[in-house]
């Protein structure tokens, strides 16, 4: 009795299998190696400053004192504000493209929005410095502070420099918009036809169908897309570095300059001369790595859940 479960592989087949498996394995190995190396480089800083690295608010290179709280604060605030600005627009585009757009408009608009993702970060930064900053400084900031009278609130107080948390958030919002809208569009398109038709058959208007039948079905995928956008915003470096003002101070005002984890690395790493400065910057990278890793895992899990249910 012959019994067999796997194909008797020739040696060429075995080599093919070994090589492709090695390629696949290289991805988790690389990820682990990257994390290990970043933590090894960051270790002196964690060892010396301990938890106060995360909570300390003084970043003084000359004095050798490194507390990353202003960067963590700047990273979180600029990213969250960017999400607040980008999400409604991104969802609007996604719903427009998946539900409302006439076919002739769908392709070009989708292409233009996707193109936003293709523009290099440094070009956003360049545009931000010479176009966005003047507009913010001369028009938007005075409008918010004086015309709307928000100048007395801590959020919009202080002189309008231009280089600021607000500028970074606006450019981040533009940059993450295509990511959020692409994922949202994908999950909205994955909503089964029957789901829509059932709502329409009940006499719902198009908007009611979207609100009551389509969006709830795609909800966790849309949230996944938003979190994916958050991951992008947290790690975005160049445009932010060029616009945020690069000052390691905690300030409630969005008009004030700030710093992010990514931008402090970009700005200071090449010139870091002491071991602890380098290690502190590596530690900023390590914090960023852990946070984006977690954010991405959550997002992928949420998006994947919709894709699985949709099948």
């Amino acid at each position: 009795m012959g019994s067999t479960s796997i194909e008797g592989a020739s040696s060429a087949d075995r080599w093919y299998r070994i090589i492709t498996t090695a390629c696949a394995l290289s991805i988790p190995l690389l990820l682990g190696f990257i994390a290990l190396q970043v933590f090894v480089g960051a270790w002196p800083a964690f060892e010396k400053f301990g938890l106060s690295f995360l909570t300390g608010s003084t970043w003084d290179v000359g004095a050798g004192e490194f507390g990353a709280a202003p960067m963590i604060y700047g990273t979180v605030v600029s990213s969250v504000l960017a999400l607040v600005l980008a999400t409604p627009l991104a969802l609007g585009v996604a719903i427009f493209l998946s539900e409302f757009a006439p076919p002739w408009l769908r392709q070009p608009v989708a292409f233009l929005v996707d193109l936003l993702a293709a523009i290099p970060s440094v070009v956003y930064g360049l545009w931000g410095i010479f176009v966005l900053l003047p507009v913010l400084r001369e028009d938007v900031m005075p409008f918010l502070a004086t015309t709307l009278g928000l100048g007395n609130t801590p959020l919009f107080s202080g002189p309008a420099y231009g280089n600021s948390m607000l500028a970074a958030s606006v450019i981040l919002a533009i940059m993450i918009l295509p990511y959020i809208s692409a994922v949202a569009r994908e999950v909205l398109m994955a909503v089964p036809r029957a789901q829509r038709e059932a709502a329409l058959a009940l006499g719902a208007t198009r908007w009611e169908m979207i609100r009551d039948a389509v969006v709830p079905y795609a909800r966790s995928g849309i949230i996944g897309g938003i979190i994916l956008g958050l991951g992008r915003a947290l790690g975005e470096t160049m445009a932010v570095t060029m616009l945020i003002g690069n000052r390691a101070e905690l300030s409630a005002s969005l008009f004030a300059p700030g710093y992010t984890l990514a931008s402090v690395i970009a700005n200071e790493f090449a010139e870091a001369s002491t071991e602890f400065h380098t290690a502190a910057l590596m530690a900023c990278g390590a914090v960023l790595l852990v946070v984006t890793l977690m954010v991405n895992m959550i997002a992928r899990w949420l998006v994947g859940r919709v894709a699985r249910e949709g099948r």
Binding site: A24, L25, I27, P28, L30, L31, I34, V38, G41, L228, G231, R232, L234, G235, E236, T237, A262, I265, A266, F269, L281, M282, G285, L288, L289, T292, L293, V295, N296, M297, A299, R300, G304
Partner: peptide, 18 residues
């Protein structure tokens, strides 16, 4: 691998630099 490849894709490029 599929999951981790998406995660690797989401790593900030500055982290790749350091």
């Amino acid at each position: 691998v599929r999951f981790l490849s998406d995660v690797l894709n989401g790593l900030p490029s500055i982290v790749m630099g350091i």
